Computed example of a mutant assay.
Amino acid sequence: MAHLSRKSGGVFEAVAGLAPALHARPGVEVGVYGLDHPALDRDRLSERDVPARAFAVSGPAAFGYAPELGRALRASPPDLMHVHGLWMYPSVAGMSWSGRRMPYVVTPHGMLDPWALAHRRWKKQLAGLAFERRHLRGAACLHALCASERVAIRAAGLVNPVCVIPNGVDLAREDRGSEPPPWRRQVPEQARILLFLGRLAPQKGIPDLLRGLVSARAEVSSGASQREWHLVIAGWGEDGYRDELQRLVGELELRDAVHFVGPQFGDAKARSFAVAEAFVLPSVSEGLPIAVLEAWAARLPVVMTSRCNLESGFEHGAALRIEPEPGNIAVGLRQLFALSDDERRAIGARGAELVAQRFSWSGAARDMEAVYRWVLGRGERPDTVDLS
């Protein structure tokens, strides 16, 4: 993978969940190689006995050239390699390792979706010409997180086998902690909390959420029993983008109702879910967001777009559907605000049931191991693999 850090967002969360679950399966040994980062975090892996190595980057961090990574891969004895993410040096290192005719699997993590390809298009076109197209075409199997990502992979012109296996969630996180997070003191005691937790990036749709919140709050009744909703934005990203969001909050006169509380990891994340009444993700592009699964595991109702690729959440009655534009987001928020406490709890309970049934890391590891064995010629083609 790229940076071995929680700052890598959903890619790191996916690796930190899948690798230990695979490592726990009989006859499977897993190691994680990644790029060094100022916020390096190997604890999630090492505490579950998964060896993890981080290699120093030379040159621009956006590409992540790490010559020692390539050398370490070529000197290592794996049967198979699984590459998470695109557009960076790990793709090049993976192809070099595979020069020995060893197979590899690639998970794009939504990076081939149309919006993602259009964002900073010229850089991705250059990377595609230089190495990424060759890397993707050489994969023994591509891993889609959902059916719509499989469609995007095919639309990108790739004809490799594709397996569809969703992300999971650590069900232990359903224990939501007892102490409130430190940021809770920033929010009025009686406020209801709508939580956004994730990377602060354009694809997350936060500006549209803020504009939708203005409209939704303007129409909420001010009866004596109505507590005011506050939006808590827990995340990390480029300082410049966070500054843009904070300026927009000021322009929309939302400073009293929107709180930027910084990244929340580990126990702080569990506490943040524990004090929230609902979770929102207004993304315009996603692979399959682990944050939504974590919110469901914490028994929270979710407000999300169809671009989150979790249609089962709507089918199961665990989420309210919104589209990534202010007017529609406002409609969804008004629906949420009008729910009774019992109705919100019922939606959250259905989310917890859904996660337990369909989104465990142990199930993802079982299915992924079957793909690995098929790629290596040690098993039949699993039902998760599509050849068309």
Rank of each mutant, 00 (worst) to 15 (best):
E13G: 13
E13H: 13
G17A: 12
A24T: 06
G34A: 11
G34Q: 04
L40M: 07
V50R: 11
A62D: 14
A62Y: 09
L69T: 00
L69N: 04
R71K: 02
S76A: 15
G85H: 09
S98T: 12
R100Q: 15
Q125E: 15
G138H: 09
L142M: 06
A144D: 05
V151T: 08
A152I: 01
V159N: 14
D170I: 01
G177A: 08
S178D: 13
R185I: 08
L197E: 12
R199V: 08
L200W: 00
A201N: 10
G205L: 02
P207W: 01
A218M: 06
R227T: 14
V232F: 09
G235P: 14
E238C: 02
L245P: 10
H259M: 03
F260S: 02
A270V: 00
A274E: 10
L281Y: 08
A291E: 03
A291C: 13
V302C: 07
N309M: 04
L310A: 09
H316R: 07
E325G: 08
N328S: 11
R345I: 00
R350C: 03
E353Q: 01
L354M: 09
L354Y: 07
A356Q: 09
S360C: 07
E369V: 02
A370G: 01
A370H: 08
R373D: 04
L376Y: 02
G379Q: 09
R381Q: 15
P382G: 05
V385H: 03
